[in-house]
């Protein structure tokens, strides 16, 4: 057995070997526990401080389409060829009737990243780093946010006042960010999209209203917010409900003269904003183009011709 002190020193070693610039999905806080596990496992096997090369592979980086775990398959070439056509978890074999450990852990990892995206709040560090004001919907916490979609679209009176203090009335464009169902999506993509969008708007001579962040916000919050500060166009960047293996997908909802009286079909949406879909910067530029059309046509949603 190794002592807790030894484990700590091993962990410190491991963290040191991580290059500071390493791209971390969702930041370093997500990376550290996983690497810690790796280090202790390796150490308990060798009973020696691990070398840099003794890291286990990143399970989540394996392309499942290219992996076949069936021993002595009747036709492995065709199996792999057909597997290429689907992201389904196929060719994963079994121990007794159960899945192999590798497949089980990969599944758990893919679910973990999705759940972390939903159940973790957008961090104060992130909000401080982008320097924007936060307002909060009528939801008191994450549990209430998830179970009461009706509250996630409303603002309490004091938050409405705060909003009015931050954002002047009758702006041409109001942009804001809401966590929605993925904090990871917001932390990963929102600012890249925002900066590209603002740059695009500047090219058209438009200076948007100050950006703010809405905690525990749902899509229809844009109606309530728009009624308070009456911008021509409201743009909402919001985290999507995560799929397995990805928590990074963000959507952009836009509406012309948004209000609670307008039907949902008044909204224009661009979804799937993430590095595997529409990259954040590209999305920002695209949104600027859509905003331009909305201003020209004085319309959005079904009434907008793109």
């Amino acid at each position: 057995m190794i002592s807790e002190q030894q484990i700590k020193s091993i962990i410190d070693e491991v963290i040191k070997t991580l290059s500071p610039g390493a791209e971390g999905v969702g930041g370093g806080s997500h990376m550290a526990p996983a690497e810690t596990m790796t280090a202790t496992t390796a150490a308990s096997q060798n009973n020696q401080p691990p070398e840099e090369e003794s890291f286990l592979e990143d399970l989540a980086a394996v392309d499942l389409r290219k992996e076949l775990l069936v021993p002595g398959a009747n036709n492995p070439e065709m199996y792999l060829k057909l597997k290429e056509t689907t992201p389904a978890r196929l060719g994963i074999w079994h121990c007794g009737p159960r899945p192999l450990t590798r497949s089980l852990l990969r599944f758990r990892a893919d679910h973990a990243v999705a759940q972390d995206a939903v159940f973790t709040d957008v961090s104060d560090e992130f909000l401080a780093s982008i320097g924007v004001e936060t307002i909060q919907s009528c939801c008191r916490d994450k549990d209430e946010f998830l179970t009461r979609p009706d509250l996630g679209r409303k603002l309490p009176e004091d938050q409405g006042k705060k909003l009015q203090a931050i954002c002047p009335e009758n702006a041409t464009v109001q942009i804001y960010i809401a966590d929605g169902l993925s904090s990871t999506a917001v932390e990963t993509n929102a600012m890249d999209t925002y900066r590209a969008l603002v740059q695009g708007l500047k090219g058209m001579g438009i200076e948007p209203n100050p950006l703010f962040f809405l905690r525990y916000g749902r899509v229809p919050s844009m109606d309530v917010i728009s009624e308070l500060i009456t911008p021509k166009i409201t743009v909402l960047l919001i985290g999507e409900r995560p799929g397995l293996a990805t928590g990074e997908s963000m959507s952009c909802y836009m509406a012309y003269e948004s209000s609670t009286a307008q039907p949902e079909s008044n909204r224009t949406v661009i979804s799937n904003i993430h590095k595997g879909g529409t990259p954040a910067v590209e999305a920002g530029a695209h949104i600027a183009g859509v905003v331009k059309k909305m201003l020209e046509q004085k319309a959005s949603g079904l009434n907008l011709k793109l």
Binding site: T86, P87, A88, R89, L90, I92, H94, P97, R98, P99, S103, F107, D110, H111, R241, G243, L244
Partner: peptide
């Protein structure tokens, strides 16, 4: 469903191995 992961409906349920 292959390992309980429905890639189209984006939810998880019982898998082939559970049968």
């Amino acid at each position: 469903i292959p390992q309980g992961d429905d890639i189209m409906l984006n939810y998880q349920c019982t898998g082939y191995h559970d049968a």
